[in-house]
């Protein structure tokens, strides 16, 4: 039965997959069969137990464990108090990482939302609306690994004497400017990585904002236009206030995704050239440096930073639901 744990051939892998699915189906069928015979609320126990056990084992307990580990040394052997936190907050190398993360979390939600909103307004009721929207939305389906490679190719550098193969540098050459090492020079390289995330998230912002723009009753916009409001005035006085709840949801959702950004940095630069961010440094600290304490500390910092965004998001959602 070795192949159950160490499937190597394609046939074995597919077999393991089916075994897993059948096993799972069997357990589910058993739970359903038993719970059918039980009275009142007792079946709820059977329905909830698998999920609750998994959540306790996979989210609750590891979360608490990581908080505990963040107060211990690299190997997790002895307590070091708040030393790890002091290191992360005061060491210049880590400060660059924190600043980079801040740049990401400020720039990506704002710019994605602005682009997404502009695009949603611009494309609304035009002839190619559906096609244009699909093209903008497409990067959402592409993995961040794939997106990073796509953009690494755009950013490729060749010396000025050779033919450029990266499109960004070719544009510079066409404009008569010298080609640049986009991903090598801090702090601008972080900016060029941020572009990748904006490229991905704009489609998300556009989709949600476009739906809520279309939900604004035509009568309101028409009334404004009859009253003599121009396009700009209608946009700022009617459209933006009407979709405020959706705007906040979009910004906070993108902010949460950006805070945990890992794939792009990992694939495009590996965190070199001062481009690292918290989530990437967490991975390097644990799996390259073997420093469990610092890794745990970075994870906890991520956790702490996410909480206010979530609370704000939930509160806004409550408020907008109350208004409805």
């Amino acid at each position: 039965m070795d192949w159950l744990l160490k499937a190597t051939t394609p046939a074995e892998k597919i077999l393991v997959m089916f075994v897993a699915i059948l096993l799972f189906a069997g357990v589910m069928a058993f739970i359903l069969y038993v719970s059918e015979k039980l009275p009142r609320w007792i079946p709820a126990v059977g329905f909830l137990l698998p999920a609750v056990i998994m959540l306790a084992f996979g989210l609750l307990w590891p979360g608490l464990r990581t908080i505990f580990d963040s107060f211990r040394d690299a190997a997790g052997r002895k307590s070091v108090g708040v030393d790890n936190y002091v290191t992360v907050l005061t060491n210049p190398d880590f400060q660059i990482i924190l600043l980079n993360t801040l740049a990401w979390v400020v720039a990506v939600p704002l710019l994605s939302t602005v682009f997404g909103l502009l695009y949603a307004v611009l494309v609304d009721r035009t002839r190619f609306e559906k096609l244009a929207k699909t093209l903008i939305f497409l990067p959402m389906a592409i993995s961040m690994v794939g997106a990073s490679i796509i953009w690494k190719f755009v950013y490729q550098y060749k010396p000025a004497t050779a033919n450029q193969t990266g499109f960004a540098n070719q544009i510079l050459v066409w404009l008569g400017l010298p080609p640049q090492q986009f991903l090598l020079n801090p702090p601008w390289n972080t900016g060029f990585l941020i572009v990748i995330m904006i490229w991905i998230q704009t489609g998300f912002a556009m989709t949600i904002l476009s739906a809520s723009i279309k939900a604004i009753p035509d009568e309101i916009t028409e009334a404004a236009q009859i009253d003599g409001a121009g396009s700009l005035s209608t946009f700022f006085n009617i459209t933006v206030p009407s979709i405020r709840p959706a705007l906040i949801v979009v910004i906070t959702t993108i902010a949460m995704a950006t805070l945990k950004i890992f794939d792009i940095v990992r694939t495009a630069t590996g965190g070199q050239f001062q481009t690292s961010v918290i989530a990437n440094e967490f991975y390097s600290q644990k799996f390259s440096q073997g420093n469990n304490g610092i890794a745990a500390t970075l994870a906890v910092i991520l956790f702490v930073l996410v909480i206010p965004i979530v609370i704000y998001n939930v509160r806004q959602m409550r408020i907008s639901e109350g208004e409805r």
Binding site: W41, F47, W61, T66, I67, A299, F303
Partner: peptide, 28 residues
Amino acid sequence: IEFPGRNILFVAVFALQVVPIQVTLVPL
């Protein structure tokens, strides 16, 4: 299904969405 503690448990599950997976990886 009405069962004792339903709301508390549901809020707890809802709240777990907050946990970034980075926090869980190493212990898991």
